[in-house]
Nucleic acid binder design. Structure first.
Length: 655
DNA sequence: TTTAGGG
DNA sequence: CCCTAAA
């Protein structure tokens, strides 16, 4: 019996010490603290930016273009490994494909990485090189991702706006074992990204996503049957726990031809993406950029604005022209990322870009293949729900994004500091291949790496839209699409999740992206940190809320009647010895709330109603023990109890 | 580790 | 529920 102490202890830990670091014990808490987060953060912004762009593009394309649809899909790959308790997400990448995409060799999913994740769930996956289409692939859509981000961050790039209605997708996130579904249908049809942690599975309505790698740009797609292609990449990272990779792909559809899908991958690892031309169309008019390689048609031109310092983070590629239809791309899409101070800005910028997009002359086109996010470590309690995991991730991203990021522009490995220099002057227009972006934290907060812990949440919030709240499965569930199930997380699930850590690493894509940290001193400086964030994230994890049931209340009341109000440990042992999630502190707190509840009018009470008789007993016991120190008694003082019960409030216990 | 309270 | 000062 007694043995339990430990149990609870664990739960309780928090008290005294900040002890966090270690860990094992405190289940609740997350131990990691990392100070460094800062650098890592940046990547997220990139994502946001990219996503924003994609959205725009998609939207724009849709609108602008013709009927054809284009979809972009991003598929991230991830490697997830689970550790029993912790998950780490390593680098997060986003890869972004431009429309056209060409796939790069990389693209091919690697079994090793992917499989880990995918296999269980998906069998189908990849392979389809052939063409396949995967209908269900686990993917996260960027859009969703964005949504979340936007939500938190307030990025405006609303996905929806994109206009593209595209397909509806369901995104599932699988995390180690867990799968979450969100059904989101987003307009974004175009973009989807995945998060590592999770594997996202997404199904497109119509679209299939095949994995494939594209060989040559021109060749573009091996197949395009489907409208959409998805590229998945793994980078293999052997990241510990988890890696996340995100690849974005876009798919296009072409009218008749199949859509061409292009995929681009980003290599994280690799070098730069060169421009690959794809083309779908693209007519682009745009034109040319100056010197940039020949991307012709590509759609994107990026514009970089000089506005601020930063510019977009990622690179872009150029697309080649592939076909002529470009739609999808639309130049607009090009991402210009101009600055991206914050996600917000990014978004906005993106938007703006559209309009400006066209500026024709001298635009340098380039695409950003992917960017990686620095490692983020997240610890979550096992009891956390998937939803909480998601939120945590979002929160982390938000946090990151929240701060402003500066984008550093690297050309041939050198950072270009002068924001006023024109692309032409810098030579960027001519050397897009060596163009790289660095995200620099401008925020406080993060430390370089890992930094933060995120709290887990208990509940998911169901999305209104989706019938079910995101579902989480432990284990991979089908990656395929799942209808939204409304399942909630069970404790079990929560447990599983519990301590996950997600670390997102930034990957350096190619050369292009450089870890932020290095670069910015400022960021670091600034970073001093927001304690808030840091702390919060770290500590935080708030246990999942578990309202006391009537039976628990009854047991508590009974125990208190017997033991009094000053012996919570005994109460715990006596009545909740087997409820590991109820600590003596919890019982004490519950008693406190019961006393309060009993003192207020029924109308004011919330939650599951507690029978009045129990409340009466609460008041009686409270009154009784207030007068009689429970302690003195020593062992059993059941007497009072009996007295109390029958009696009303506190009348006569004694007498 | 527990208790006791404030947040 | 969390966090902590005290014990």
């Amino acid at each position: 019996m007694v043995s339990k102490k430990r149990l609870y202890n664990g739960g309780l830990n928090g008290y005294q010490a900040p002890v966090v670091p270690k860990a094992p014990r405190s289940l609740r808490r997350i131990s990691h603290k990392k100070s460094s987060a800062g650098s890592d953060i940046c990547p997220f912004e990139l994502l946001a930016t990219v996503a924003g762009k994609l959205l725009q593009e998609s939207g724009s394309s849709a609108s602008s273009t013709s009927p054809e649809r284009k979809e972009q899909i991003i598929i991230p790959e991830e490697d997830v490994k689970q550790e029993p308790l912790e998950l780490k997400i390593n680098p997060l990448r986003l890869d972004y494909l431009d429309q056209g995409c060409t796939a790069e060799s990389e693209f091919v999913p690697e079994p090793s990485n992917l499989k880990l994740k995918l296999e269980p769930a998906l069998k189908d996956l990849p392979h389809s090189d052939n063409d396949s289409v995967l209908e269900h692939t686990s993917v996260m859509t960027t859009s969703d991702f964005l949504k979340e981000v936007s939500t938190n961050v307030k990025l405006e790039a609303s996905n929806d706006k994109n206009g593209v209605n595209g397909d509806v997708c369901d995104a599932n996130i699988d995390t180690n074992g867990t799968k979450v579904q969100t059904d989101a249908v987003e307009d974004l049809s175009a973009v989807k990204s995945c998060v590592n942690n999770c594997v996202l599975s997404k199904s497109f309505n119509t679209t299939h996503v095949p994995f494939y790698s594209d060989p040559a740009p021109s060749a573009c797609f091996p197949r395009h049957r489907n409208n959409v292609k998805i590229g998945i990449r793994d980078d293999d990272e052997s990241y510990c726990s988890f890696n996340q990779h995100v690849t974005k792909m876009r798919a296009y559809r072409f009218q008749s031809r199949a859509g061409y899908r292009r995929i681009r991958k980003m290599l994280t690892t690799t070098k730069h993406w060169k421009s690959i031309p794809k083309l779908k169309d693209y007519e682009n008019s745009n034109t040319t950029s100056r010197g940039v390689k020949a991307f012709d048609q590509n759609r994107k031109h990026i514009y970089m604005r000089e506005r601020c310092q930063a510019e977009s983070a990622s690179k872009r590629r150029k697309l080649s022209h592939h076909d002529s239809k470009p739609d999808y791309v639309q130049e607009t899409s090009s991402e210009s990322i101009s600055n991206i101070p914050a996600a917000k800005s990014v978004t906005s910028s993106v938007i703006s870009h559209k309009s400006s997009f066209q500026s024709k002359d001298g635009h340098v086109k380039f695409s950003i293949k992917s960017f990686k996010v620095p490692d983020l470590y997240i610890e979550m309690p096992e009891t956390s729900t998937v939803g909480s995991l998601k939120r945590t991730v979002v929160e982390a991203l938000t946090t990151i994004l929240g701060g402003e990021l500066d984008v550093g522009v690297l050309l041939q490995g050198k950072k270009i500091k002068d924001d006023n220099t024109t692309l032409q002057q810098t030579g960027i227009s001519l050397n897009t291949d060596t163009l790289g972006f660095i995200l620099e934290p401008n925020l406080p907060q993060v430390s370089q790496k890992e930094p933060s812990l995120f709290p887990s949440f208990d509940n998911h919030e169901p999305l209104p839209s989706s019938p079910a709240s995101p579902i989480v499965d432990v284990g991979f569930l089908n990656p395929s699409i799942d209808p939204p199930v409304a399942s909630c997380l069970d404790n079990q699930i929560e447990n599983n999740q519990e301590s996950k850590q997600a670390s997102i690493k930034e990957m350096v894509d190619a050369k292009a992206i450089v870890p932020i940290r290095q670069l910015n001193p400022e960021a670091l400086q600034i970073v001093p940190m927001n304690h808030k964030v840091t702390k919060k994230s770290e500590l935080s994890q708030r246990r999942t809320r578990r309202p006391f049931s009537v039976s628990e209340v009854e047991a508590l009341v009974e125990a208190v009647e017997t033991l009094g109000t000053g012996r919570w440990r005994d109460v715990k042992i006596r009545a909740f010895d087997d409820a590991n999630h109820r600590t003596y502190v919890d019982l004490k707190d519950k008693w406190k709330t019961l006393v309060h509840t009993a003192s207020i009018s029924p109308q004011q009470r919330r939650g599951e109603p507690v029978p009045q008789d129990l409340l009466d007993r609460v008041l009686a016991a409270h009154s009784f023990w207030s007068q009689n120190q429970s302690k003195p008694h020593g062992k059993h003082q059941t007497e009072p109890i009996q007295t109390l019960r029958p009696v009303k409030v506190g009348q006569e216990f004694e007498g």
